[in-house]
Amino acid sequence: MDFSLFAGLAPEHQPQETLDGAIAELRDELKAQGFADRNYRKSGAIRLVTLEKLIASGTVDNNLEPQKAVA
């Protein structure tokens, strides 16, 4: 990928960390905190899980637009 346009448009807002570095930092922090939940992808803290529940309940539609409650 070429991000030269972004670099030209926002020279003061360039990434300060590499992707590999960010992943390593996240891994190290999770290890330091003793994170070991193998089912974390099903956690209510995962945005996609929460959105799927909202869609299933009819609170929002497939475009994530709020649905009016039926009286």
Rank of each mutant, 00 (worst) to 15 (best):
M1C: 11
M1E: 08
D2T: 05
D2V: 04
D2E: 08
F3R: 08
F3P: 10
S4T: 13
S4L: 07
S4M: 07
S4C: 02
L5Q: 11
L5S: 03
L5A: 11
F6K: 10
A7R: 13
A7S: 14
A7L: 07
A7I: 10
A7C: 05
G8Y: 05
G8D: 04
G8Q: 10
G8C: 03
L9K: 04
A10K: 09
A10N: 04
A10Y: 12
P11M: 08
P11W: 04
P11A: 02
H13C: 13
H13S: 15
Q16Y: 12
Q16L: 14
E17T: 15
T18E: 04
T18N: 01
L19W: 14
D20P: 00
D20L: 09
D20I: 02
D20Y: 06
D20N: 09
G21L: 11
A22V: 03
A22E: 10
A22M: 13
I23V: 07
I23T: 02
A24W: 06
A24N: 09
A24D: 15
A24C: 06
E25M: 10
L26A: 07
L26Q: 05
L26K: 08
R27G: 02
R27Y: 06
R27F: 10
D28T: 12
D28R: 11
E29I: 11
L30C: 03
L30S: 00
L30E: 00
L30R: 05
K31P: 00
A32R: 13
A32P: 03
Q33S: 07
G34E: 05
G34S: 00
F35I: 02
F35Q: 04
A36C: 08
A36R: 12
A36K: 07
D37R: 05
R38N: 04
R38I: 15
R38A: 14
N39K: 08
N39A: 08
N39F: 03
N39G: 06
Y40N: 02
R41Y: 12
K42G: 10
S43W: 08
G44P: 08
A45F: 13
I46C: 04
I46E: 07
I46G: 03
I46A: 08
I46Q: 10
I46D: 05
R47C: 12
R47A: 15
V49C: 01
T50F: 15
L51V: 11
E52G: 05
E52R: 15
K53T: 03
K53P: 01
K53I: 09
K53N: 08
L54Y: 08
L54S: 03
L54N: 06
I55L: 02
I55R: 07
A56R: 03
S57H: 08
S57V: 06
S57R: 10
S57I: 12
S57N: 03
G58E: 01
G58R: 01
G58P: 00
G58S: 00
V60W: 00
V60N: 01
D61N: 13
D61A: 02
N62H: 13
N63P: 00
N63M: 02
N63V: 03
L64F: 13
L64G: 08
E65V: 14
E65C: 09
E65W: 15
P66R: 09
Q67I: 14
A69P: 05
V70D: 11
V70G: 14
V70N: 12
V70C: 11
A71V: 15
A71G: 12
